[in-house]
């Protein structure tokens, strides 16, 4: 996060300028404790939560926690740094982010190559190799610098296997762009996959590895909670309501496609554990190993056609 330099000059009541712009009438907009908001930090907006509110010299001050960021970033801010969490404002957030990325790629040019070479990249398939060759001037991954400050994110983000990234983009395209769904229930389920990984691991270490066992339990637990809360695209909600009833665990219904989405969310979730750096690094290595296992079994774990029905789908043909 950069310096917080964007105090949009609205010290007191900015009654005059009542346009649709940010902050609107900042004296009117009010937030409660526990509200989710968007908060400016430097040039960008971040999702945050209002933890406490106090009045300081007649001005309201909000103590915010930036979601997914270390608590060290928590801070007191004035009203004009906050926006309501609305769709419009979220679009604004994305726009700012996009502009920022463009800025950075222009500035940083070719000199910055963040990705460590070797091991990981060695066996990417043709598709990726092609893009590597073509893109000698491969751009540094946008936002890497920022991300690296989220201590819990660095490794898991920077070393996310390329083929699985592609899988996620395809997944995004099928569901959000083409209105296709993964047919449920899946086989293997998330549960099956995690169990298989433990077997694979146990065979490799020739004993049950307690750390891995605990991590896998943790992943399952996260998955069941996170699926309805943050792993579904809007278009998948009806299907969820239909397929997951009573006390059924999502991890026995959904499969690799949704498990993979959990890995995107993991850094954010793990930030709440406040782990020591050393332990966190080890954990991320292990999580990456699980990802590699997914990648190795990509053809059997993931569906090759999204053909579940989606209400309001336009009937485009699946591949």
């Amino acid at each position: 996060m950069g310096s917080s330099s964007n105090t949009n000059s609205s010290g007191g009541g900015s009654d005059k300028e009542e346009d649709k712009g940010k902050g609107k009438d900042s004296s009117e907009q009010s937030f409660k404790e526990g509200d989710r908001v968007l908060a400016y930090h430097g040039p960008l907006l971040y999702e945050a939560k209002v933890q406490r509110i106090e009045n300081l010299d007649g001005e309201r001050r909000y103590f915010v926690h930036y979601l997914g960021w270390n608590k060290n970033w928590d801070e007191w801010v004035a009203n004009d740094r906050l926006l309501k969490l609305t769709e419009e404002n979220m679009r604004k957030q994305q726009e700012l982010e996009k502009n920022q990325v463009v800025d950075k790629t222009i500035k940083s040019g070719r000199s910055t190559q963040h990705k460590p070479k070797g091991s990981n990249d060695a066996k990417v398939d043709k598709d990726d190799t092609k893009s590597l060759v073509k893109g000698k001037k491969r751009k540094s991954q946008p936002g890497t610098e920022e991300k690296e400050r989220r201590s819990s994110e660095s490794l898991l983000v920077s070393q996310f296997p390329l083929m699985l990234k592609k899988q996620l983009v395809d997944d995004w395209e099928f569901v959000t762009q083409m209105g296709k769904l993964v047919k449920l229930p899946r086989s293997p389920t998330v549960d099956d996959i995690l169990k298989r990984y433990l077997e694979h691991r146990t065979k490799k270490d020739s004993k049950i590895n307690d750390s891995y066992a605990e991590i896998l339990k943790g992943l399952r637990c996260y998955f069941d909670k996170a699926l309805p809360a943050m792993l579904l695209y809007k278009k998948e909600r009806d299907q969820y309501a239909e397929e997951v009833k009573n006390d059924v665990s999502p991890s026995t219904v959904y499969g690799a496609e949704h498990l993979l989405r959990l890995f995107v969310k993991l850094p954010e979730l793990l930030a709440f554990v406040n782990m020591e750096e050393d332990a966190l690094n080890k954990l991320q290595q292990k999580l990456l190993d699980i990802l590699k296992f997914l990648q190795k079994n990509q053809s059997t774990f993931f569906v090759n056609a999204y053909d579940g029905k989606c209400k309001g789908a336009d009937g485009t043909k699946a591949k």
Partner: peptide
């Protein structure tokens, strides 16, 4: 952390990657 349902969204970096 989990009480408020929100939709999944793929981080920008993933989509940009594809563009690149």
């Amino acid at each position: 952390n989990f009480s408020q349902a929100e939709d999944f969204s793929l981080p920008e970096s993933f989509l940009n990657k594809e563009d690149n």
